[in-house]
Structures are given as structure tokens and as C-alpha cells.
Amino acid sequence: MSMITPIERDEQLLVVEGLDKSFGPIGACRDVSFELRRGEILGIVGESGSGKTTLLRCISGQLEPTGGQVLFNSRRHGMHDIFALSEQDRRRIAREEWGYVHQNPRDGLRMRVSGGANVAEPLMMNGRRHYGEMREQSLNWFERVELDLGRIDNKPRTFSGGMQQRLQIARNLIHNPSLVFMDEPTGGLDVSVQARLLDLMRVLVREMGLAAIIVTHDIGVARLLADRLLVMKSGFVVEQGLTDQVLDDPQHGYTQLLVSSVLQI
């Protein structure tokens, strides 16, 4: 981790330019700009209320920004402002090329259908109609995220918190997306479960060459997973750069506070 290697997969995947999002008088995101390349993992850190979730929802097409642009390099449209596309095209990009892992598995899973169906859903959403093939693929993904194959037909509510997050991860990777958004994917879990899950995510994301944007409170998570880091405060990006650089030599006062507060523990 200590060696800083320049990212070689050079193609731009996502470009965010001057993004603003306000809720009435509240400026949740203010003039946010950054870029993401294929296969790159970007961490977003910042205190509670700094606008991390809002930013993630804007760049994943769920929330229309009040200003600025979100350009995504999709298979169908090339590099294009997603909010200039029709809702139908935007939804198709989300379905085909993105995953979104929620902090609370209840928001990211369908609790009324089995774990296997949750994992296979993105395949069906993308037009697959062969049960046997989809079954095999979800079994395969159960294995990859280290879930007990015997539980494949059980409802998610019978799974533990950590298992539910594994389900969410499988469900968001099975259709081979190019970009996965994760909002504090290990937030509600105890430390040992967190560590294993993080390790798993690191392996999967690297194996698949995915790009990912991971929101976290946790500097440790950021250090483990992220190539680059974006630090937010009050809706602004106050600092961004290679993870090790930002964490080892924080420039902004807030980042210094963030890093030192972790080190004190």
C-alpha cells in the first residue's frame, strides 16, 4: 500500500463538474468537481452532514443536481451528461453499468424475496430469461461472497447484518458493472465482520477491474480500499489526492483534524 503507483488504466469514466445540490437554503453539495478513471477506487470521507450521501445520489442519477454536470462514459452513449439524457436512458445506464450498495441493507435488498432472487435480479432486469443459468450464476456469487449455499432460498431477514451486506455486494456485482457506488458499506457492522468484508470487497473489486466510489466515515476503510481520496466539509471538497498522500500529509485543517483524531485512538 505504501508505494504510490500511478493509475495506468487511463480512460476517464466519470467527470463531475461544479456540482451543486441544495435543499432550500441548505447547500448540501457545493461546487464539487472530480474525475474517476476506469478501475479506480475513490474514497469520500467527511463528517456527518457534509454532503457525502447527497453527492453519491446525484452522481448515480437518483437526485438531480441544482447545478453543474455529471458526465459518465457509458457503453451506449459514450461520455455524456447523464442529466441531459432521458430518464429512460439514465435508468438503463444504472441498470446495466452501475451498482449501488446502501449503508442499510434494507434499502438495497428486496426483503420479500429470497437471497438467491435478490442476487439474480439484475440479470433479469437486463433481459436474461433462462432460469438455470441465472440460478447457477447466483450460486456462484453466493460462493464468491462467502455465503452459505444452503441459504440461497432463504429470505434476507433471516440473514445477519454482515450476511445481508454480502448479499447486497453480490447483487451489485453480478451483472458486471463498470462502476459501483457504496455508501458506508460496512457502517453498521462490528469490527471483525467489517474487516473480512472489506478484504472481500478489495479482492472482488480488483479482480473485476471495477471502478468504485466508497463513502465512509472511517479513515481505515479509506486507506485500505481507496486509490484516491476526496475530503468533504459543509458540502465543499476541501482536499483531494492520492489516498496515502492525503492521509500522510494532510493539507487542509479539517483533514488534519480527521487524521489526527483517528491516530489518537
Binding site: 424475496v113 429470497s114 439474480a120 433479469m124 432486469m125 430469461r129 432460498d153
Partner: peptide, 14 residues
């Protein structure tokens, strides 16, 4: 977008 409907068929076969 009718992929979701197949989810109930999937559950049934499973």
C-alpha cells in the same frame, strides 16, 4: 422495464 416480474417466476421455480 419488466425484469422485476420475472423475480416472482424465479421465486416460484426456486
Amino acid at each position: 422495464e419488466y425484469g422485476l416480474q420475472y423475480l416472482s417466476l424465479y421465486e416460484s421455480v426456486a
